[in-house]
């Protein structure tokens, strides 16, 4: 169910991002949006990890898995902010409807691109290890062990600066999803002469 979410305008005034009713429903689904602190940040990631584990071990076709991941991403991530950041400087001169459309296409692209890789995660364990207060956001660290390999470190950066507690970056062994997507989207945009609308159309087939 695509949620039509008007993004921040060019005047940088945050608009109410979801209709009130939808907000209430999503709050009940994603959990009450308490003030962000160490405990709530950790809980968010705990729930996120549990959801991911559930989807991975549920079996089902790749298409089904990817749709499930798209929902998880929509629910737990600040998709608009990530999408906007991925566009880089180009976002400043884009209209809010362009940003909107891009954000929706971006969501599907991310779900396909990263959802594909989760096949390897079957039978793995993700354990949240600790949470750090970084001033403007919280960093929740986890250790991932794929079957019998050496565990690797993942951290989730959680913020409430969009009005809800959401994660805005995932860092795997030091490599940031946000940075990586900014490089990728930047290159895709360059090869389309900065045409965001064209990129939005093409994104549907990428990932």
């Amino acid at each position: 169910m695509p949620i039509s979410t008007p993004i921040l305008t060019l005047n940088k005034q945050p608009i109410v991002r979801r209709s009130f009713l939808l907000g209430m429903t999503s709050a009940m689904v994603a959990g009450p949006a308490f003030a962000l602190d160490k405990a709530t940040a950790t809980q968010l990631v705990d729930r996120l990890v549990a959801e991911i584990n559930r989807v991975i071990n549920s079996g089902g076709s790749e298409g089904k898995l990817i749709r499930a991941f798209e929902n998880i991403f929509a629910q737990y991530a600040d998709v608009d902010i990530i999408a906007r950041s991925a566009l880089g400087p180009a976002a400043r001169s884009a209209s809010s409807s362009e940003l909107n459309a891009f954000s929706r296409a971006f969501r599907g692209y991310i779900a396909r691109k990263y959802g594909k890789q989760f096949q390897e995660f079957i039978g793995s364990s993700i354990v949240v290890t600790r949470t750090k207060n970084r001033g403007k956001f919280f960093e929740v660290e986890a250790s991932v062990r794929l079957k019998a390999t050496t565990p690797f470190e993942v951290s989730f950066r959680v913020s409430d600066r969009s009005g809800e507690n959401l994660f805005f970056d995932i860092i795997i062994e030091g490599i940031s999803l946000l940075s990586s997507e900014r490089v990728e989207i930047g290159a895709l945009l360059d090869s389309r002469n900065g045409n965001i609308a064209r990129l939005t159309r093409d994104l549907v087939n990428l990932g």
Binding site: L8, D78, I81, S85, A91, D169, S176, S179
Partner: peptide
């Protein structure tokens, strides 16, 4: 400075 803060733009 390793990482981007996407909110700082706004």
């Amino acid at each position: 400075d390793a990482y981007i803060d996407p909110y700082s733009d706004l």
